[in-house]
Amino acid sequence: MNSHDYAHSIVFVFKKGSIRVKQHHTDLELIGTGRSACVFRIKGTKKVIKIFPPQFIHIAQVESDIYRLLTHIDYFPTVYETGPNFLTMDYIKGDTLFSCLNKGIPINENHIKEVEHILELVRKTGLNPSDIHLRNIIITPDNKIKMIDVARFKQQKHCTQWEDLKNAYDRYYKHRFFPKRLPEFLLNFIAALYKRKLLVLNLANKKKVSG
């Protein structure tokens, strides 16, 4: 079975504006669902295939082009094959920062500095790293950082999401009494408030709002 066949085996449905998978090949194990694609691990391999439903297939080409620009930066997965609606790439073993917060796995300052280093390398390619969130930063078993989901790295506007996360890390997470393990529902609630601009994490912005 090749990647094209796997990609065409998927039957998507949409429920309340979210992607759902109704059917997929038995070789595939669903491991992630995002706003515009689903990710499956290909059983018996160290690869995943990211598949986009029809209304989002244009993003597949965008993301493929961006990964091509990042091939010299080993903090990103290697892409082996692309098609009209899919990308086949490395399976990255580890825990996302979201999972670390949920499980109580420590996130230290070296992890934050490593993300900063990666983003600087991306900027040097002429891209604008955007939409950096807890689910697209992974701490691997050897305590290294890997990043995924680069489709928005070509957008022009300035994205403050990573800056806001750093501010939250410095202001809250590093506090000795801050709980290092948080339930998933609370993390999702905080993310929803942030997305709706009901939660301000950027300290500079907060001063402007309150002033």
Score class of each variant (00 low, 15 high):
residue 87 L to Q: 05
residue 52 F to W: 12
residue 186 L to Y: 13
residue 108 N to Y: 14
residue 175 H to D: 15
residue 18 S to Y: 12
residue 200 V to K: 07
residue 9 S to G: 08
residue 134 L to I: 15
residue 206 K to T: 11
residue 79 V to W: 04
residue 82 T to W: 03
residue 50 K to A: 05
residue 181 R to L: 01
residue 207 K to M: 13
residue 118 I to K: 01
residue 135 R to W: 11
residue 96 T to Q: 05
residue 53 P to G: 03
residue 50 K to W: 08
residue 120 E to Y: 11
residue 80 Y to M: 07
residue 137 I to C: 09
residue 60 A to S: 13
residue 167 N to Q: 06
residue 202 N to T: 14
residue 65 D to K: 10
residue 80 Y to H: 11
residue 185 F to I: 15
residue 68 R to T: 14
residue 171 R to Q: 09
residue 80 Y to N: 06
residue 1 M to K: 09
residue 81 E to A: 10
residue 211 G to T: 14
residue 6 Y to Q: 05
residue 127 L to R: 02
residue 173 Y to S: 09
residue 124 K to Y: 12
residue 30 L to Q: 09
residue 49 I to H: 00
residue 66 I to A: 01
residue 142 D to P: 01
residue 188 N to H: 12
residue 37 A to Y: 02
residue 52 F to A: 09
residue 114 E to V: 07
residue 153 F to L: 08
residue 195 K to N: 10
residue 90 D to G: 08
residue 109 E to T: 15
residue 75 Y to C: 07
residue 41 R to E: 13
residue 156 Q to P: 05
residue 65 D to P: 00
residue 53 P to Y: 06
residue 99 S to K: 14
residue 8 H to K: 14
residue 27 D to I: 10
residue 18 S to N: 12
residue 102 N to C: 08
residue 131 D to G: 04
residue 39 V to C: 06
residue 65 D to F: 12
residue 137 I to Q: 04
residue 136 N to H: 09
residue 122 V to Y: 02
residue 123 R to G: 00
residue 77 P to W: 04
residue 172 Y to C: 13
residue 120 E to F: 10
residue 102 N to W: 07
residue 168 A to S: 13
residue 133 H to M: 04
residue 159 C to W: 11
residue 150 V to S: 01
residue 4 H to V: 14
residue 188 N to W: 02
residue 67 Y to G: 02
residue 18 S to Q: 12
residue 20 R to I: 09
residue 175 H to P: 00
residue 28 L to M: 08
residue 116 E to T: 11
residue 167 N to P: 01
residue 2 N to H: 06
residue 144 K to P: 00
residue 53 P to W: 12
residue 165 L to K: 00
residue 4 H to P: 00
residue 38 C to Y: 02
residue 69 L to R: 12
residue 152 R to V: 01
residue 81 E to M: 06
residue 44 G to E: 14
residue 71 T to Q: 09
residue 91 Y to C: 07
residue 188 N to S: 11
residue 198 L to C: 10
residue 71 T to D: 08
residue 90 D to Q: 09
residue 67 Y to S: 06
residue 63 E to T: 11
residue 45 T to P: 05
residue 190 I to G: 08
residue 81 E to P: 02
residue 89 M to L: 10
residue 53 P to N: 10
residue 190 I to R: 02
residue 21 V to L: 07
residue 46 K to C: 07
residue 179 P to K: 06
residue 116 E to R: 04
residue 151 A to C: 07
residue 143 N to W: 13
residue 197 K to L: 08
residue 58 H to Q: 12
residue 106 P to W: 10
residue 31 I to P: 10
